[in-house]
Design a protein around this nucleic acid. Structure first.
Lengths: 233, 233
DNA sequence: TAGATTGTTAATCGATTAACAATC
DNA sequence: TAGATTGTTAATCGATTAACAATC
């Protein structure tokens, strides 16, 4: 009785629901309807109800959803009731920035170690996390519970490192290197490609600019044509 | 004669095409067919051809695509032939990490200034970029070309900052604060939500784990049922 | 009970894949 | 010319939205 596969689009939206519900919770909001939430989040109420019903009925007809309950349920779906030990390989600026990001710990993501090849960095501390030499990585993984490895090494080293990590039993990789890692399918890779994010921004900036120019010309040229359908992400 | 709107899914894929073509270029590959590229990128050849034909015919029947030409054309589409001045507001770890990321400059993204409210940070330098006091932000924007503002301030300050930036004429925002910014539609916001990325990873880790358990049980219980359709992102 | 709002089915819309004629 | 591969149309698939009966 295989449960229907949850689509990736739905999963991508879950953390955003979780965030909005967390904000509501902080404001002591007790209940919310799909309609109210849809207005806040700028999505359709229908989509919210469809998304949630992939995981079960969390609401009540005529009432809506209990904020605290729904928040906690989505947390469970996202696997946030568990604790994750994360190690960071690459203690450069990005690795250090991650290690300093205390906020993740609230959600159960704990940075337990940092590694780097650079002897200058080895031994230094980020918060209370000491930077270890990269050649101790294998041993560390064998002797400690490591759920996720954040890869913040240069592009060229990332694929080799990833292959090693897999060999040593790692199943979760948070990849910041600007490259795709081709790993066995039982290994989960989540990519953060900052350069690509920036390119998307530049694409939208340049098309928006040229649209405005076109628009200006049109207005000057003929008459008012002011209607603008816009579809945000 | 309004050109058909390019879908967001297509735009999201463009930077990845650009990256793969850049890699091929470095390896001195002269031509590539949609089929070869599709195998490298693990997408369908049909999708590649459809995507590219949103912007015009870059290939040649019987030959494929010229790597250098296609790379350069996608670069133009992404707006990478222009130069973008980026300032960073929030010179904490993440802001510093970005400022240090030299690689963006190759693509025409130049960090020109850093701002922070913390007097301890003001005056310090990241590479050759000095950290300025936040109250000089408005003046700086008025006197310098600023194309993109990277927001790396705490969640609570982000919406107010963003509203100010818009007031001062900023049209492009690269938002790292874990909140949505509701801004006029002529302002382009690109979000990088690291916490949400981590939650997606934890979702996939926890579901994969339970699938394996289910799978193991199934195998033990009955017999081999080893076929696994998998659909990666 | 009447009103509100969910859960869920059906209709629509959009994106992906397949197929093939055009053409290098 | 024959083979290869694009550009593009048509078919399929999936995701979003609309609608409404169920029910609190």
């Amino acid at each position: 009785m295989q449960k229907k596969e949850i689509s990736k689009a739905v999963i991508n939206r879950l953390p955003r629901y979780y965030r909005y519900l967390g904000d509501l919770l902080e404001k002591d909001v007790v209940r919310i309807s799909s309609k109210e939430l849809s207005q806040k989040m700028k999505v359709t109420a229908s989509q919210i109800r469809q998304d949630l019903n992939n995981f079960g009925g969390f609401g009540q007809q005529g009432y809506g959803y209990n904020v605290e309950y729904l928040h906690s349920e989505i947390g469970k779906i996202l696997g946030l009731e568990k604790k994750y030990n994360i190690i960071i390989v690459g203690a450069g600026n990005l690795g250090q920035a991650l290690a300093n990001y205390v906020d993740f710990e609230r959600r159960g993501f704990v940075f337990t170690a940092l590694f780097d090849v650079n002897p200058q960095l080895v031994g230094t501390k980020i918060r209370d996390i000491v930077v270890r030499p990269a050649d101790e990585l294998e041993e560390y993984i064998k002797n400690n519970q490591v759920d996720i490895v954040a890869i913040t090494v240069p592009k060229i080293r990332a694929p080799i490192l990833a292959a090693d990590l897999v060999k040593w039993g790692i199943k979760g990789i948070w990849n910041f290197a600007p490259t795709d890692l081709n790993l066995p399918k039982d290994v989960t890779v989540e990519n953060v490609h900052l350069a690509e994010s920036l390119m998307k921004l530049s694409y939208r900036l340049s098309t928006k600019k040229s649209q405005e120019e076109k628009h200006k010309t049109a207005v000057e040229g003929s008459d008012k044509t002011n209607e603008k359908k816009n579809k945000e992400d």
